Simulated scan of single mutants.
Amino acid sequence: MRTGGGTPTLEVPPLDAGHDLKLLARADYAHLSSTQAHAHAVRGLDLHLRRRDDGRRELFGIGLDADRVRACVRHALRASPDVVTVRVTVFSRHTADVADRSLVTWRGSQDDHSEGAVAAEVGVRVGLGYGSSGKLLDVYQPVGVPGPAPVVLFWHGRGPDERDVLAAVARAAAERGLVVLVPDWRPDAPDGGRAQLGESAEFVRRNAVGLGGDPERIVLAGWSLGGKAAVAVALNPEAFGGWRPSAVVGIAGAYGSAAPTTGTVPLDDLRRGGGARPPLPVWLVHGTADPVVDVERSRELHTALGERGWPTSLDEVATDHAGVIMTEFVPERQRCLPSTADHAVLAGSRTADVLARAAGITVGRSNRRP
C-alpha cells in the first residue's frame, strides 16, 4: 500500500486481486513493514526486506521472494508523488481462509516425484482440540475420494508441540488418499507425554468415521521420538491400553531405549516375544545421511523383526533426519521448517508413499529392504 498526496493505492501480486483483497481485509495473522519513499526511492529497503523475510519464516515457515516484493513496490510507485508512505503486508491466503471457514484446500501436484501417487485435493482442519489435556491437532483430508479413506495418526518428535513440523509430509500423504491426523504432544511432560499420546489415539478411534476415515484401517506413524513411540505400541500394546493399529510406520527412530507410550524398550519387547497377539506390519523409513539417529538403528530393528517373523520393510532414503519429513533444520530457529531442496522433497515424497502403502494404497516403490 502507498499513501501520499493522492489516493491510497493497493498493489497485490497478479493472481486474483479481488479475492486477495478480501482475504487481506479479514487476515489476522500477518506481518507488515512501513517506510517512506522519497523520489521513488526507499532508504534501507534491504533491511526492511530482511525483516520481512525473518517474519515470513517465523509465521509461515518459508522465506520471502524479495524480487517479487521489489517489483510490487516499483509498480505501486510508478505514478506516485515525490514523498509517500509504503507499507508491505505479508499474509497467507490459506491462513486468511482458516479465519473465515476453518477448512482450507490445496491442490496436490501432478508431478511430485512419486510414481503412482494420487493427486487429490486436500482439505486441512486446523487446531481441533482432543482429550482433557487441551492439546490441538490438525486433520489433512483428501477431497473427493470415494468411500471411507484409511487413517494415519502421525506423532511428531522430541520438540514439544511441534505438529507443524509434519505439515508438509502429512499433506503429501493426504494427496495419496489418506486422512492424516497430526497432534501436538509434550515429551517434556511429567509422564513423558504418554497421556497425551493416549488421548490422541482415543480421539482418532472415536472420530475416524466423522472425518471420512475407516476405523478398521488406522495406521500409527511417528517421526524420531514419535517413531519409537509408535513402534512400541505394536510391540507392547498392553502397556498402551490394549489398542493396536492395523500397521505401524517408524520414521528416523531409535528403538533401543524406553518409549514414551509404553515405558519399555521396543527391541526388548520384541525379544521377549512382542506380546501374545499376532505380528502386524511394521514399516520403517530412515535417511542414510541422518546425523541425529543413525540409520543402523532402523536396520537393527528391521533385522530383529524379520528374524521373529514380523512383516516388515525398511526404506532407506538419501537425506538427513529432517529431510525424511520434507524439512530442513534451521539453527537460528532451533526448528525444522519446510524445505524445497531436492533431497528433502524426494525423501518426504517417499515417506508419504510408505504411509500410503502401510494403509493399503498402491504407490511407487523406493530403495526398500524387504
Rank of each mutant, 00 (worst) to 15 (best):
H38M: 11
T105H: 12
T327P: 02
E316Y: 03
T303R: 14
T327A: 15
I325W: 03
R299E: 14
T9R: 11
Q36T: 14
G193W: 03
R186Q: 14
A229K: 07
V69R: 04
V69F: 07
E216D: 15
F240Q: 06
A96R: 02
V265R: 05
V42R: 08
G55M: 05
G127H: 08
T3P: 02
R205P: 10
P146A: 15
Y255G: 04
L59C: 01
F240G: 00
E115Q: 12
T95Q: 12
R217D: 08
H321F: 09
G61P: 04
V118Q: 13
V231D: 03
R176L: 02
L49N: 06
Y29S: 00
H38R: 13
R244T: 10
L181R: 03
A304Y: 07
D269K: 02
R333V: 03
F91M: 06
D164S: 13
G63N: 03
V73P: 04
D342P: 01
G274L: 07
T7D: 14
G241N: 05
P266R: 06
P281I: 10
V233M: 01
T362F: 03
W185Q: 01
A356E: 02
S114E: 13
L235I: 08
R57D: 03
E202H: 05
P311C: 11
G123A: 15
V330F: 03
S109K: 00
D315N: 01
R272D: 13
